[in-house]
Design a protein around this nucleic acid. Sequence first.
DNA 1: CTGCAAAAATGCAATGACTGCAAACTTGCT
DNA 2: AGCAAGTTTGCAGTCATTGCATTTTTGCAG
Lengths: 206, 206
Amino acid sequence: MAPAPAPAPLRDRKRARTRQALIDAAVTLFDRDGYEQTTIADIAAAAEVGARTFFNYFASKEDLLFSESDARVRATLDAIATREPHEAPTDVLLRALRDVGAVSDEMASPQGALRLKLGRTVPAVRGRALQAQLDAQREIARQLAAAYPDTLDEVSAAAVTGAFIGAITATLQVLLERSAEPEDPAEFHRVLVEATDLALAPWAGK
Amino acid sequence: MAPAPAPAPLRDRKRARTRQALIDAAVTLFDRDGYEQTTIADIAAAAEVGARTFFNYFASKEDLLFSESDARVRATLDAIATREPHEAPTDVLLRALRDVGAVSDEMASPQGALRLKLGRTVPAVRGRALQAQLDAQREIARQLAAAYPDTLDEVSAAAVTGAFIGAITATLQVLLERSAEPEDPAEFHRVLVEATDLALAPWAGK
DNA sequence: CTGCAAAAATGCAATGACTGCAAACTTGCT
DNA sequence: AGCAAGTTTGCAGTCATTGCATTTTTGCAG
């Protein structure tokens, strides 16, 4: 039996380091030169690996930006998992909305902030982001349906989840349209929750 | 003064014909060989124009699929324009939902049906479709806000519209997941409206 | 009819994402 | 030390998309 060390398969450590180097290089370059102006060759060079190697880590340029699982999705799934016995489905979602700190979270990491910015300006990134969102939404709907087997079938769960996330997305879009660079993330989040909350109010307790 | 003919600037007629030829060629080939297997050179060849010419008509391969303005969006804007004096915003949207015949319409033209299919299978197309939807949504929200200057500000209008379209999209997604090829479009539409209606019910009269 | 200028169609060359393939390297373990 | 699985690269090729320069077409005036 091995003593106890085994901190990490060693080989994997290196892999993780390269991966992160690519992400860091990309984020830096995207930020400095712009997404479209940055070529994959540039990124690989900055990360000190061969260009071909990039594709050993990410399937495409966009993919790199969406490689970490979204914290907001995790938080929402968490909210569902820890629901109160008598809490209604929509209330769970409303609670998640308030807890999650949608944008704040996004703004936290440089990657998140950049993703938000590129999502507004680069079509390819926006498309990818929307796809990721739709997938996350489906996953949330599944968990919601599973949590309320007696009340919600898959279709209803999807519809409700879609309504919630759709409202949030649309609101976020308009708010971002107004002030591209929210000066105060906390305040921004407050406004977002307030507006969305209001729009979704008819659902409280449903 | 010219008698009265001038049915169309003649030159434009030809342009329209070429455009349509490209669309037809593309739809046929996409359907026969698959979207990714069909190259722009193939499409141009089938339409009997030079490959470079393709880009005189469409900015990209995806664009060709989304070149006609969406009938559903037009119908929704119409529903808003023709609202009853005392009809609530959400009721207008609910009415539009019932009238529009979301999928039925889509299934009507070969282009629409193909778009629906490709939207489920080709990432690039899906991304483009979602972007188009978000844009349409914003436009609808604008008109809605304009129609209810006293009740809705831009943010609320966006939130409500987002919730509606989000619910419809999510429902549609699940239904399509179940039966890739709806045998009966009419029945399919009925189920879609019913499910979405139910999910959006809390909003009636709001 | 004729000629001209705008509009459209093309051809060519170049950039850059992405893929398949095979050779050269590393690492993990015996 | 020595092999096998896991990685990194280089290379060549396909394809979308673009900029530029040239050749056709078409609409209209003279």
